[in-house]
Amino acid sequence: MFYSGVMLPPRDPDQTLKARGADTRPEGRFETHRRVREADGWDIPEDSTLLRTEVVSETPRSIITRNTSPDISFDRSINPYRGCEHGCIYCYARPSHAYLGLSPGLDFETKITAKPDAARLLARELARPSYKPAPIALGTNTDPYQPVESRLAIMPGILRVLRDWNHPATLVTRGQTVLRDLDLWAEMAAKDQAAVGISVTTLDAELARALEPRAPTPQTRLRMIRELSRAGVPVRVMVAPVIPVLTEPEIERILTAAHEAGATTASMIPLRLPHEVAPLFRDWLERHRPGMAAHVMNRVQAMRGGRDNDPRFGSRFRGEGIEAELALKRFRLARKRLGYRDGFAPLDCSRFGPPPRSGDQLSLF
């Protein structure tokens, strides 16, 4: 099928998919060749095999990524993983797999790269004399608490380094494994050095299962908000992405449920469909909501200047036109009515410094 000038290849008939967002493996935008499967009459029928997740490790030279985007409130981040098994079909990070020569489709959610040495690299970078502290954002590209984290446990090491150095951090996640590290997040939050954002796209469990096949259910995410807030961790509910027709009617309900669970701040972002995400999302609509597909995309384009996506700074996270304005007004009115705060208090960077070593003399002041 052709979508926005991009042809998606057919599904591999020799693979069975279970709880996957994408249905196929379109080549990334940097590939010079396209692979087309053709039946030549000589195919031998084979048993279909279940497509499973593969995880490989890498040791990068540095773990802190810097950015200068005017749309983003942080200037540094850490992503312990490339790719994400949650399989959210709308994920704006899917195109990053194209830099690895992999497909932003099924490869993004089944071929995961982990950075198990992240804690050691972080400690080395924080120890540099030139380093100046500012909050580090965790999970800005792919979710650090995706399913594989429950086995690899990279995040506890990162958090211990941040805690020991008194370095503030923020988190964006929808993975329930964050509750495994609740004591570390609570310990940092007690020093005003931690804040967590929980993404809630919809309260409809059936829709969530189709959109985000391996992510926790909406009720589980509300429980995450509740347990984090009870532990003293400031929690932001992120109503994102807001998908016209599908999830946009739920803006007020999501804000109400999250506030009752303990969220104190809230944000929203309309659906973004950069690069390869647009044809993948269109294909998902045809498979899961065919009767709504045209309506959804017409409304998306009404917020994006007539296109599937608007990459411009200043509008990519807000949208434009009456559709985007009405959604934002509804969000702001509900946020005000429910008593959400405007944002988190600034995190404390003043105590940043190397952790004491055995035998060090303690300061008198």
Rank of each mutant, 00 (worst) to 15 (best):
P45L: 05
Q176Y: 01
K132I: 05
P133H: 05
R299F: 00
L222W: 00
S229E: 12
S358A: 14
D117K: 11
S229A: 13
G305T: 14
S48V: 15
R282P: 06
A189L: 05
R226H: 11
R282E: 01
P213D: 11
M155D: 03
L271D: 01
M238H: 08
L50Q: 09
F313W: 15
M1P: 15
P311R: 12
R29S: 13
H295D: 06
M188V: 10
P10R: 11
K329F: 14
G359E: 06
D310W: 05
R226S: 15
F74N: 14
Q361F: 07
I154E: 06
S57F: 12
E27K: 02
E212I: 01
I198H: 05
A345R: 07
P354F: 02
A345H: 10
R312N: 09
E323N: 08
Y81G: 01
D40L: 07
K336F: 13
A123V: 06
R160V: 02
L347V: 06
Q301F: 02
E187Q: 11
Y81R: 13
T220F: 01
D71N: 11
P80N: 03
P274Y: 02
R351N: 12
R34Q: 11
R289W: 03
V172S: 07
D360A: 08
A186G: 09
F281I: 06
V178G: 03
L280C: 12
R20G: 06
L121I: 05
R160Q: 14
L17H: 02
R287F: 08
T177N: 02
T140P: 02
R272H: 07
T32M: 08
Y99N: 11
G321N: 05
M155G: 00
L126N: 05
D47V: 15
P147G: 13
I158F: 13
R61F: 10
E109C: 02
I158N: 13
L138Q: 05
H97Q: 15
H259R: 15
E187M: 11
H295T: 11
L285T: 05
V237N: 04
L102M: 10
A127T: 13
L106M: 01
R341Q: 15
K18T: 09
G353I: 06
R223M: 04
E85H: 08
R29W: 15
S69A: 14
T201N: 08
I254F: 09
P80D: 04
E58D: 10
A258V: 14
P244C: 12
L333I: 15
P241D: 07
E46Y: 01
A327K: 04
D75W: 07
Y99A: 11
T256Q: 09
A186R: 06
R330L: 09
P356Q: 03
S62G: 06
H288P: 04
E31I: 00
R52V: 11
Y90R: 00
S267T: 11
R304D: 00
T59H: 00
E227L: 12
I158R: 04
I322N: 04
I251D: 00
I89N: 12
K132S: 13
A127E: 11
E252F: 06
S62N: 08
A266T: 10
V235D: 13
E325R: 14
R221M: 03
D43C: 08
G5Y: 15
R120N: 00
S96F: 10
A39Y: 10
C84H: 14
A302C: 10
A278T: 06
E212K: 14
T264S: 11
A153Y: 10
R332K: 12
P234G: 01
P168D: 12
R128P: 00
Y3K: 10
L338R: 14
P290S: 07
A205D: 13
T256M: 05
